[in-house]
Nucleic acid binder design. Structure first.
Length: 270
DNA sequence: CGATTATCCTGTGCGC
DNA sequence: TGCGCACAGGATAATC
């Protein structure tokens, strides 16, 4: 599932392929992909030049000449794929952006949770609720966010208002790196544990970006070119229930937090 | 207010 | 073989 490292990998691909290219056309199919404002507003992007790309958490930004930002969120099953001009659309293709001299980008999303929207037109509040991007997380901010909270640590690590970009997979990997159980009450963490979480966040996400993200067995995530990531090969705990901990060889445990599976090493993580 | 649960959706893989 | 169902999970609305 696309989390920060996967979205960053896609962003870099878009930047590499399409920066400086004019958008010839943007075609939408279906009614769910643009839902924060009238879909027709996207037509104002046609003819504009892609001047930059950005990312906050799992939100991807395409910045266009004239000062418009198209926001893309892949949610769980969304993909952006680079295609040749006029390429056949695979199933669940909901948007096609054609670039002058650079082929097309297809937005493919079987579960239709993903979305596109123009930043200025977004309702209700835009993206102002997002916490700091996970790569810019500070110990002070995290300590304040966790202070006094009884909810499981992982619930706050995956709360985009606390820190933007961490989802179910990387929250488990970060907790392992910090040697803290994901089900610990958030407010019970010591100051050193919070510091380890911040360091673990930076380290895990940076290594995951380096590896092109994680592609699980379902093959849901791939980059613009259809290539899977390889960070799953380095996962310490996620998806490894019963397998030996890479550090102490004890079996990795799985618990459910909320409705999500969470993996941890009962010995290495307290 | 904080914490939990339901909702959106489809492909996949499992048990019976 | 086929059917039903649990599961995967990001963000947000609803509810406790």
């Amino acid at each position: 599932m696309p989390e920060l490292p996967e979205v960053e990998t896609v962003r870099r691909g878009l930047h590499q392929l399409y920066l400086g290219r004019p958008l010839l056309g943007l075609v939408l199919e279906g009614h769910r992909t643009v839902r924060r404002h009238p879909p027709g507003l996207l037509r104002q992007l046609e003819g504009r030049v892609l001047e930059g790309t950005d990312r906050v958490g799992k939100f991807l930004f395409l910045r266009w000449s004239g000062g418009r930002d198209l926001v893309v969120h892949l949610r769980m099953s969304g993909q952006l794929r680079a295609e040749q001009r006029g390429a056949q659309r695979r199933p669940h293709t909901h948007a096609v952006m054609a670039f002058d001299g650079a082929g097309e980008v297809h937005f493919v999303d079987p579960r239709t949770f993903g979305e596109l929207f123009l930043l200025d037109e977004a309702r209700p509040e835009g993206l102002g609720h997002l916490g700091p991007d996970a790569l810019r997380l500070s110990a002070g901010h995290l300590a304040r966010a966790l202070d006094g909270r009884r909810a499981p640590l992982k619930a706050l690590l995956t709360d985009q208002r606390v820190v933007a970009g961490v989802g179910n997979i990387y929250a488990d990997e970060i907790c392992f790196a910090a040697r803290v159980r994901p089900d610990r009450p958030a407010g019970s963490l010591s100051r050193p544990a919070v510091a380890r979480l911040v360091a673990g966040t930076t380290d895990v996400l940076a290594r995951a970006i380096e590896a092109g993200g994680s592609t699980l067995g379902d093959g849901q995530y791939c980059d613009l070119f259809g290539q899977p990531g390889s960070f799953q090969l380095q996962h310490a705990v996620y998806g490894r229930e019963g397998l030996p901990c890479r550090s102490c060889a004890r079996p990795v445990a799985r618990v459910r937090l909320g409705a999500r599976s969470s993996y941890f090493c009962p010995r290495c993580q307290r």
